[in-house]
Nucleic acid binder design. Structure first.
Length: 473
RNA sequence: GGCGACGUAGCCAAGUGGUCUAAGGCGGAGGUCUGCAAAACCUCUAUUCGCCGGUUCGAAUCCGGCCGUCGCCUCCA
């Protein structure tokens, strides 16, 4: 078993990973604010978290993952008001859209998707504890966290609080706080906004408190991993640590993992550049979701991912190479005894693949091991070195490494209508036989006409020394 | 201004002290197969890791400087 190492943002170094409870990993992954459709940058973080949970399982752990849905904040409130609908109705559209995106990219479901609006009492409870303990104070119906009361504030981000103090943005803050750096735990109700009753009057929770409260509800006061995008390091995750440790009196999270941003054509995504794509927009352009998932996987999560259309094309080509190998394997003739070359290739794959994955989730390296394997198997097929039982052993090895990747099995990504343009298998076989007969009597016009017809129906025919083989494209 | 990241072949991207004259993919060039084609497969495709110094027996990998790109600095994954 390979030891898992992660780059912990807290401390900024690679370190061996050990869960608090043997064999079980509890992780909290910051989810979407459901005020708009997710863009491909948001989705990068979610695919990264999917890779993480799948990899942990592959490496032998049970996983409990929580992902919050932020359904009450400035943006959802504003959106609902503008559209003249309830908050719930407004966010439902984007929650549905979010899950549709996850499905399209084959992201596994987390164990829990708590919504902020369904956990207001948990948040009020935690805020009350913070007030009791002197970490928070009330002001005009709002409650603020007193940063000065938390000595080790800033140890995740390494932020210099003196700097924050003098920043212009903070100076323009709308609230009257003891210290400009203090942040809101509870915001007093404003006209027209949805609100909940609390000991401090009607209002709504601040952003950071939801993650502290909901993670405690589902994972307890201390757990193993917390993830998000790098932009969450400060202030969001810093504030979560402050709230949770001040309220619970125990260490909050051991390992913090942060996904780097995605850029498009070398530039930051922004509405004004018009490059803030949603998954739906890419799919409408004809990009395959499987290739998009591959693009996400092929760059290490701590590296900026430069998303380009040509990268998606390259990904599609890479996947085709794998599909093609399996296709050729399916019609390979097995020899007498199992092939030592195949056994060696499988052993090498499993070792290299696992080692890379355990090393801070190096999926790009793991993918490299898969392609080395593909090449070796191709050679074995070419050289007639596929032995008894090898086909299944190869397929099984691919299925194992695909458990964390979720991208190798073309069949799993097939859209419903792959029916070969109305031709069933028997009909295809009959046409192929007819074409073979035509070829045998050197009636190539007839043979090519049949091939064209099959091609038109989405059937690819490949001639080999052992006869033709076909597949639906 | 403060904090931080990155710069590897035409493109994408691993590797972070010796097995690196640098994995893998895309693209490109040859070849094999074929009636032709397509597809596929095989081989080749960076003596070099932004530039300059230094440390070391040894550096793409560590240190310093410079150049370039980018992110964060109160609610953006």
């Amino acid at each position: 078993m390979h030891e898992i190492r992660f780059f912990n943002t807290l401390g900024r170094r690679l370190e061996p990973f050990r869960p608090l409870e043997e064999g079980l990993v509890r992780m909290y992954t910051c989810g979407p604010t459901v005020y708009d459709h997710a863009h491909i940058g948001n989705l990068r973080a979610f695919v990264f978290e999917d890779l993480l949970r799948r990899s942990l399982r592959f490496l032998g752990y049970r996983v409990v993952q929580v992902m919050n849905l932020t359904d009450v904040d400035d943006k959802t409130i504003r959106g609902a008001l503008e559209r003249g609908v309830s908050l719930d109705e407004y966010t439902r559209t984007y929650i549905d859209s979010f899950f549709a995106d996850l499905d399209a990219l084959h992201v596994e479901r987390a164990e829990h998707y708590p919504r902020a609006t369904e956990h207001i009492p948990d948040m009020i409870d935690m805020i009350a504890t913070l007030v009791d303990r002197g970490y928070a104070y009330q002001r005009d119906g709002s409650v603020f966290f007193r940063i000065a009361a938390d000595e080790d504030y800033g140890r995740l981000s390494g932020i210099d609080l003196e700097q924050v103090k003098s920043s212009a943005r903070v100076a323009s803050d709308e609230y009257d706080k003891d210290d400009v750096r203090d942040f809101a735990l509870w915001k007093a109700k404003k006209d027209g906004e949805p609100s909940w009753d609390s000991p401090w009057g009607p209002g709504r929770p601040g952003w950071h408190i939801e993650c502290s409260a909901m993670s405690r509800r589902y994972l307890g006061p201390s757990f193993d991993i917390h993830c998000g995008g790098v932009d969450n390091i400060f202030p969001h995750h810093e504030n979560e640590i402050a709230q949770s440790e001040s309220a619970n009196g125990v260490p909050f999270v051991h390992t913090w993992l942060h996904a780097e941003h995605l850029i498009v054509d070398g530039q930051k995504m922004s509405k004004s550049l018009g490059n803030q794509y949603t998954l739906k927009q890419l799919l409408e352009r004809g990009l395959e979701p499987r290739a998009i998932r591959y693009v996400y996987l092929a760059t290490h999560y701590r590296q900026k991912l430069n998303f380009t259309f040509s990268a998606v094309e390259a990904a599609a080509g890479a996947l085709r190479r794998i599909d093609e190998m399996r296709f050729r394997l399916a019609s390979a003739v097995e020899g007498e005894a199992p092939s030592p070359a195949v056994a060696a290739a499988i052993a090498r794959l499993e070792d290299d693949f696992t080692r890379n994955l355990a090393d801070d989730l190096n999926a790009a390296g793991a993918l490299g091991a898969v392609f080395v394997f593909v090449k070796e198997i191709n050679k074995a097929i070419e050289g007639g070195a596929i032995g008894a039982g090898d086909r299944k052993r190869i397929e099984d090895a691919l299925a194992r490494v695909d458990q964390p990747l979720g991208v190798l099995d073309a069949g799993a990504w097939q859209e419903g209508d792959g029916d070969g343009g109305g031709l069933d298998d028997a009909e295809i076989e009959r046409l192929l036989a007819e074409r073979q007969a035509a070829r045998a009597r050197r009636d190539f016009a007839r043979a090519d006409a049949i091939r064209d017809r099959l091609q038109g129906a989405g059937i690819v025919v490949e001639d080999t020394p052992q006869g033709p083989r076909w597949r639906r494209s």
